[in-house]
Design a protein around this nucleic acid. Structure first.
Length: 566
RNA sequence: UGGGCAGUCGCCAAGUGGUAAGGCAGCAGGUUUUGGUCCUGCCAUCCGGGGGUUCAAAUCCUCCCUGCCCAGCCA
């Protein structure tokens, strides 16, 4: 990774105001801070999903806009859930999204020694104790949401005994679950997090970075605030469910001789219609084979969306458009689609492909001639240039572009109707050839030689413009048609006896053979196309050049089709 | 009377005492060799509800209602 790739790779944009930026503006104005340092702190226990992009763009975006720094820190304090596969994928995904942490890559596990020292300080000051309660006993004594808890019988051990016991915990003398180190706070607090929380537990597990050096591991609440302080984070931005943890975050930092005291700020996490965002449920999909992997194009993971063809710029754009606030909300999936279309409209090459072919014979066109007609690659981008597409006597058009008895307002092909073939000629349907079963087998048409390029000067009004493919030069391609991610509206509100798996869209993936113009053989993996009048497609990263595979990214907006459906 | 947080258009969201931004969706037109794009217009007399303070409130006070989060030796 060349280090010229900095967070400046993401262009600056005018930022909408939000309450976090307001706080930072005040801190800068008051002189509380001169340089803003944020951090994105994932636990490496799964792949990043669309929900994480909000946090990533928020933290890295703030660093960019305030000329600050955003650290990447892996919150790897639970070795039993974590894996290097995940740290690698997370780094790759963040880079793909266009952000870079430069030299500022950290792991909570880098702080294990320091964290341990601080724990001994807590013990020495009588603010932490070794507790022999079993998990069940501790749970019982914690009290309930409405009733206070009871103090552990081990709460008043001497400092010397606590220190001795804690050192022996570290040395591996005790079994998992037999002892914990707990902060001595307040068992009657209304905030359950303050009821003598566990700060170290015994886990005789191999850690993906520290190996077998440790058999005691610090808990999140204890680790996170200290890690932030050690790194000089100014604003520790996290999601709403940690609001209750803020008093504990502040408590640890107040007790310990840490270099600074970052401010924790909470915001509402991203929820999206049609989308499962729970790591646990996504892991189930992968583990039980409902999808091909974390990067299956139906997955709401960053890797899945990349594979499907969503541009990184679109995900960034979404993150900006949804805003940042404290009210829990669910963003409409339509907004993501809009961001994708908006980006692809500017960048995707226009190309012709027919997904469900209906043969056409141009009766007045010579059998043995193929002519090449110029076509623009993208009308939104003149610099994208032109290409030439072959035209001949035998063509294929989209079956749904022909209607034997057209409805009112139909201006595509119908018996006797004249339409324009994009970039080519006007044609008129002269005859409909039916198969024995009554279905349409092919159409016999005539073309108007004077309309070459799709235009005449005689003022003729031809409103319908169809995409088409020359039969004999058609390239066979494969398309994967995906529906909206893959779930029903609210998989979490499943009925009694059903799991979210019962709500998966079983038609979420349809693979179809299709025919395209020859230029599609030159498609590069990851490159996006607009298959004219159909949808945006992206050349799959795993595709073979001889047989390109295209993932449908999002459908084009089609108001006529919508009306027709309803 | 456990604790914490939140309620502004169908979905997001700005607004921090001076008379309701913007986007998505939707609707109506126009342009168009994609029923795409683009352009124009419409879309909250009202800010969860009731009281109150004020010349003036979505913004302040007060009571009420609704929703979300918390009882892992997960993060």
């Amino acid at each position: 990774m060349e280090d010229t790739k900095t967070i400046e790779t993401v262009p600056e944009k005018e930022q909408l105001s939000n309450f976090i930026r307001n706080i930072i503006d005040k801190d800068l104005a008051s002189g509380k801070h001169v340089k803003i340092i944020t951090r994105f702190p994932p636990e490496p226990n799964g792949y990043l999903h669309i929900g994480h992009t909000k946090s990533i763009c928020l933290n890295f975006g703030i660093a960019r806009d305030y000329k600050g720094i955003c650290h990447l820190r892996f919150d790897d304090t639970n070795p039993t859930a974590e894996d290097v596969e995940y740290v690698d994928s997370i780094m790759e995904d963040i880079h793909w999204l266009g952000w870079d942490w430069g030299e500022k890559l950290f792991f909570a596990s880098d702080y294990y020694d320091k964290l341990y020292e601080y724990a001994e300080i807590l013990i020495q000051e009588g603010k932490a104790f070794v507790c022999d309660l079993s998990p069940e006993e501790m749970n019982k004594m914690r009290g309930t949401l409405k009733e206070p808890g009871q103090e552990s019988p081990w709460r008043n051990r001497s400092i010397a005994e606590n220190l001795d016991l804690f050192r022996r915990m570290k040395a591996g003398e005790f079994a998992e679950g037999s002892k914990t180190l707990r902060a001595k706070i307040d068992m009657s607090s209304g905030n359950i997090n303050m009821r003598d929380p566990v700060i170290y537990r015994i886990k005789k597990a191999h850690h993906h970075r520290t190996g077998d050096k440790w058999c005691i591991y610090p808990m999140y609440d204890y680790t996170h605030c200290i890690s932030d302080a050690l790194e000089g984070i100014t604003h520790s931005i996290c999601t709403l469910e940690f609001e209750d943890h803020r008093p504990l975050y502040d408590w640890f930092l107040d007790q310990l001789p840490v270099p600074c005291h970052p401010q924790q700020i909470e915001f509402a996490r991203l929820n999206m219609t049609w989308t499962v965002m729970s790591k646990r449920l996504l892991l189930t999909l992968v583990k039980e084979g409902y999808v091909s992997g974390w990067d299956d194009p139906r997955m709401p993971t960053v890797a899945g969306m990349r594979r499907r063809g969503f541009p990184a710029a679109a995900l960034r754009e979404l993150s900006e458009r949804i805003g940042v606030a404290k009210a829990s909300s669910t963003v409409d999936f339509e907004l993501l689609q809009f961001c994708v279309r908006e980006e692809l409209n500017k960048t995707a090459k226009r190309v012709m492909a027919v997904l469900d072919p209906l043969p056409i014979e141009i009766e007045n066109y010579p059998e043995d001639i193929i002519e090449y007609l110029p076509a623009e690659n993208n009308p939104e981008d003149p610099s994208s240039g032109n290409r030439e597409i072959p035209f001949g006597k035998h063509l294929l058009v989209e079956r749904e572009d022909f209607a034997q008895s057209p409805a009112k307002g139909w201006f595509r092909l119908a018996p006797g109707a004249e339409v324009r073939l994009k970039h080519a000629y006007y044609i008129t349907c002269k005859e409909v050839v039916l198969a024995p079963d009554g279905s349409v087998e092919k159409l016999i048409c005539t073309y108007d030689p004077a309309s070459k390029g799709g235009w005449t000067n005689d003022g003729r009004k031809v409103k319908g413009t169809l995409h088409w493919i020359n039969r004999d030069t058609a390239v066979s391609i494969e398309t994967r048609l995906y529906s909206h991610l893959f779930t029903i509206e609210d998989p979490m509100a499943a009925e009694e006896g059903k799991t979210f798996l019962d709500y998966l869209d079983s038609n979420s993936l349809v693979v179809k053979q299709a025919w395209g113009e020859p230029s599609l053989l030159e498609a590069k993996p990851g490159e996006s196309y607009q298959f004219l009048r159909m949808a945006y497609f992206s050349c799959d990263p795993d595709t073979q050049p001889e047989k390109p595979v295209f993932n449908r990214v999002v459908p084009l907006k089609d108001s006529w089709g919508k009306k027709a459906k309803s």
